Amino acid sequence: MRYEIMGPLRVVDGEEKSSIRARKIEVLLTVLLVRSDQVIPVDHLITEIWGEEPPRRVIAGLHVYISQIRKFLNRPDRDENPVLTRPPGYVLRLGSDELDIRHFERLVNDGRHHSRAHRYGQAAHSFESALALWRGPLLDDVCCGPILEGFQTWLYEARLECVEMLMDARLMLGRHRELVSDLYQLATEHPLREALHRQLMLALYRSGRRADALHVYQSARKTLNEELGLEPCRDLQALQQAILTSDDRLELPIPLPA
């Protein structure tokens, strides 16, 4: 069985894909999966589901939701339900089941390893596979408690970092011309991510568009000044100077085996 939380919650068992329509039960199962193999205290679960204003019979309600999740996850070929009572709360044991976010982390780590070894083709494949697991916002981006809010923040940053590493790997493979439009879109959507501006500048420069690359720098500098009162980071400033002097080090290195 595979659990998927990189998007709306889904449980995949062979060819069958199941989801939970009841919002509070979906929140509860998602929290158990985010903290899988860890005991989550009852009061933490209550905060995740109901926020700071739980109903009067909240413990009884939580027990009902746990019972419904156990029924949802029960399989005739299993000796034990994955959701266990463990004082002071509950735990979901993954066992041999899969969780998409752990697969995502493995693929990202593989990509980093390939990049460090200059195997950029394999690195790009790992990063692409990791990003393919993303199916959309978790729980429509509306959460009550710190566990899911923290997970959403982590997932957002981890996905963006993966995108940036993928762009770096593709740049090293000489795919700068095909990256320009994607990097323009990414830099516009995330104007404070200096790495994306750096990648766009480099892709433009290698595509013979030095003036456009310098314009990207000025635009990024203006945004950083207006939004944060900051100058661009050293890497971005160094890249601007290198473009102004047509530094040979900006040219694509001799290709290495993928």
Rank of each mutant, 00 (worst) to 15 (best):
S18D: 09
L200P: 00
R93G: 11
N81F: 01
L99V: 06
Q152V: 10
D43L: 00
D77H: 03
D79R: 15
E157S: 08
V216L: 06
G208C: 14
E194T: 03
E164F: 10
H63I: 03
M6V: 02
L224S: 02
L139P: 07
L28R: 08
M167S: 12
R10Q: 13
N225C: 06
I69M: 00
C233Y: 12
A169D: 04
S36M: 07
P253S: 01
D79N: 13
P41R: 10
I5D: 03
L202F: 10
E189L: 13
R193Q: 13
A60N: 03
I25M: 05
R210N: 03
V58L: 03
L179C: 08
E227L: 01
L29W: 05
V12Y: 02
L155H: 11
L32V: 00
D77R: 09
I254H: 07
P8E: 14
A158W: 06
R56M: 15
D100Q: 09
I5F: 01
L244R: 08
K71P: 07
A123E: 12
Y217K: 11
A187T: 07
E80D: 14
D182C: 07
E80H: 15
I59Q: 15
I59M: 13
H113Y: 12
C144S: 12
L73A: 06
E48D: 09
E231D: 15
I69R: 07
L94C: 11
H125Q: 15
K24H: 13
R159I: 15
I5S: 00
L230M: 14
G14I: 06
R112Y: 06
L214D: 13
R210C: 09
L228M: 08
E52I: 13
E164S: 15
Q152W: 01
L179Y: 09
M167Y: 14
E189K: 04
L45S: 05
Q185P: 04
G89A: 10
S67D: 12
H197A: 11
V142H: 05
R234S: 05
E189Q: 03
D13Y: 10
R177L: 00
R193T: 09
P191N: 07
A213Q: 04
L84K: 14
D247R: 06
M167K: 11
H63V: 05
L131D: 09
G61P: 06
E164M: 04
V34Q: 03
L192W: 10
H114E: 15
A132T: 01
V42E: 14
R35G: 10
I66S: 05
R177K: 07
L33R: 01
E15D: 15
R198V: 05
V142P: 03
K222V: 02
D247Q: 02
A203D: 08
D212A: 12
R23L: 13
G111P: 01
A22I: 07
L239A: 07
H44L: 10
H197F: 00
E189C: 01
H44C: 02
Y184L: 12
E149D: 12
S126A: 11
I254Q: 07
K17I: 04
T47I: 03
